[in-house]
């Protein structure tokens, strides 16, 4: 029966908590859209553009999952979350998955009962200082005022680093990158610290980027990845293997340009299994046979997504570094499709 949203809400408020809900995959399919939690605005990783279309590295993961489930990369509702609200949004079922620069840590995985389904970006916390300060290492920062963009595990890493090296510092916690950057440029803090990817992106927008240097120290491991709720392995598998499909596609040379052609059938059995022309991997996941093809068609493979959103030809200008394929000396590695 068709009920309007308005009426649906009105009646729903009167309801009582009932039996356990069905699996997330069934819920998502029944709803017809994927609810994906994203950041409220971080250049290159996720923000709506002038037309209101969400763009970015994390956003592409959401689109790929939507494409894998529905065959339609636009069947996704983006729900902006802040550092404070993201976990509750996921735990309460408001969003089906969270693709928002969130560090995989023990306590989030175990205590908060979330399941990190993989890593789509290996990051680490770095420092940026004005070149005029004459500092070449983070260990020379004794007594400095440090602007921190709060959100991931930045505050904790910073405290650890300065304690470990027996240095004094003055933390200035700031909520948004824009405000932190303004304080930093006005000289209200000597150092700006956040994930190295964010530092590069911020520096790129400065009036004189060359006046600022990013210090060599990376003080933390920040494996960023999408996460889902504990206790629903089927849905976890869908998101995990969609991400893996994007990674494997790059390794196997499947791109958005040639995926349609390769899906007809190739010499390489793994490509065939991935794209559904051989085997029944899609069925095992509870999806169509061409799920991975759709996911790759949405935004391209992992490498294409990287280049388009944060790669060296974008204003963000990040090198692949740790995020290169394992075959090229990086850490990006997908388990085999078999």
């Amino acid at each position: 029966m068709k009920k309007t949203i308005f009426l649906g809400t009105l009646t729903a408020v009167g309801l009582v908590a009932g039996a356990a809900a069905a699996g997330t995959l069934d819920d998502v399919k029944a709803r017809g859209t994927l609810n994906c939690g994203v950041v409220t605005g971080l250049a290159g990783f996720g923000a709506p553009d002038a037309n209101g279309q969400w763009q970015g590295f994390d956003v592409s993961v959401c689109r790929a999952v939507a494409a894998a489930v529905f065959g339609d990369p636009t069947a996704v509702e983006f729900i902006p979350t802040t550092g404070k609200t993201r976990f509750t949004a996921l735990a309460s079922g408001e969003i089906d998955m969270l693709a928002r620069n969130t560090t995989w840590t023990f306590s989030r995985d175990v205590d908060l009962k979330f399941e990190f389904i993989g890593i789509n970006y290996y990051d680490g916390q770095g420092f940026m200082v004005p070149a005029s300060l004459g500092v070449s290492s983070a260990k020379e920062l004794n007594g400095a005022t440090v602007c921190i963009q709060t959100g991931t595990t930045t505050e904790l890493n910073l405290a650890d680093f300065f304690e470990e090296n027996n240095l004094e510092y003055e933390p200035v916690p700031i909520e948004t990158n824009a405000e932190a950057q303004q304080q930093y440029l006005a000289g209200a803090c000597d150092v700006y610290t956040t994930d190295a990817s964010g530092l590069a992106a911020t520096r790129a927008t400065f009036e004189n980027p060359d006046d600022h240097i990013i210090l060599p120290e990376i003080v933390s491991k920040e494996p960023l990845g999408p996460l889902v709720r504990h206790g629903d392995p089927e849905w976890g598998d869908v998101v995990r293997w969609t991400l893996n499909a994007l990674i494997a596609a790059e390794e196997l040379g499947v791109t958005s340009a040639n995926v349609a052609e390769l899906a007809e059938g190739t010499e390489n059995p793994e490509v065939n299994r991935l794209l559904g022309s051989e085997g029944n991997l899609g069925e095992m996941l509870g999806l169509e046979a061409d799920w991975a093809k759709n996911a790759i068609m949405a935004n391209g493979n992992y490498g294409e997504i990287f280049e388009k959103n944060i790669g060296e030809n974008t204003p963000i200008g990040l090198a692949r570094g740790l995020n290169a394929q394992w075959t090229e000396g990086g850490l990006i590695y997908s388990p085999p499709f078999r």
Binding site: G83, K84, T85, F87, T88, A91, S107, R108, D111, L112, T150, G151, T153, E155, L156, V172, P173, I174, E175, E179, Q183
Partner: peptide
């Protein structure tokens, strides 16, 4: 206060603590 980075109780208990522990 959190809008200007002043660490009042909303910035500590309702901010970083809530953010890190997830105990909303």
């Amino acid at each position: 206060a959190i809008a200007v980075g002043y660490m009042d109780v909303t910035g500590t208990l309702g901010g970083i603590t809530q953010n890190q522990t997830g105990r909303a």
